[in-house]
Amino acid sequence: MFCLGCGTELKKVVSWHSLFAKEEGPLLCQECLEKLELISGEVCRLCSRPLGQNPYQQDGMCLDCLRWEENEAWSGVLDRNISVLMYNDYCKELIALFKYRGDYAVAAAFASLLKHQLGTLTYDLIVPVPLSPERLYERGFNQSEALILSLGKEPAHLLARKHSEKQSKKSRHDRIHLPQVFQITQQTNLSGKQIVLIDDIYTTGSTLRHAAILLKEAGAKTVISLTVARG
């Protein structure tokens, strides 16, 4: 076995964290693991952001989540986001290797971190966040789907992109009022269904909420997102 992060040979089994599925053994070496930082301590009950000493919080929620929940259109759309890692330098590097360099194999390392969290959830369907056809061709794979497959699960393709648009440079107001970028692919009745969305990173929560709102409109009972990192 070789470390998926840096390629060094994995010699001994290390017990860094119980979050790793024991039977698989770790997929990252001790050094790479130490460079990653698990989210711990007190976190926002909606989005997993560590609250720490942050004074801008209420009812265990961070300011961003408060804003989302205050907005009538978005309140309650995403029931919760669970992230596993802090978005530190090394996490950033690994996600870039995975998503932008296109090193699909790294998904397995992330999946081994998500596995435990997924096990704590009850759900009916796991839904990937879709990419535009151009982006999909460019990358060769959809990182969200890659994570689901690496978790050994079947992705339910309920969503598709309407059109692609760069989001990163928009203001928060723009994002909240952004027109819908997704659409439901099949007119399935999702009533009573519990759905998990999986993605690599939760940054503003906008993308995941745009996905969640369609699922809720189609009848989904709960939509929880499970993401590798909290950006």
Partner: peptide
């Protein structure tokens, strides 16, 4: 071990 496979959209 320096090769990996993936379901390729291309």
């Amino acid at each position: 071990h320096q090769f990996a496979a993936f379901p390729c959209a291309r």
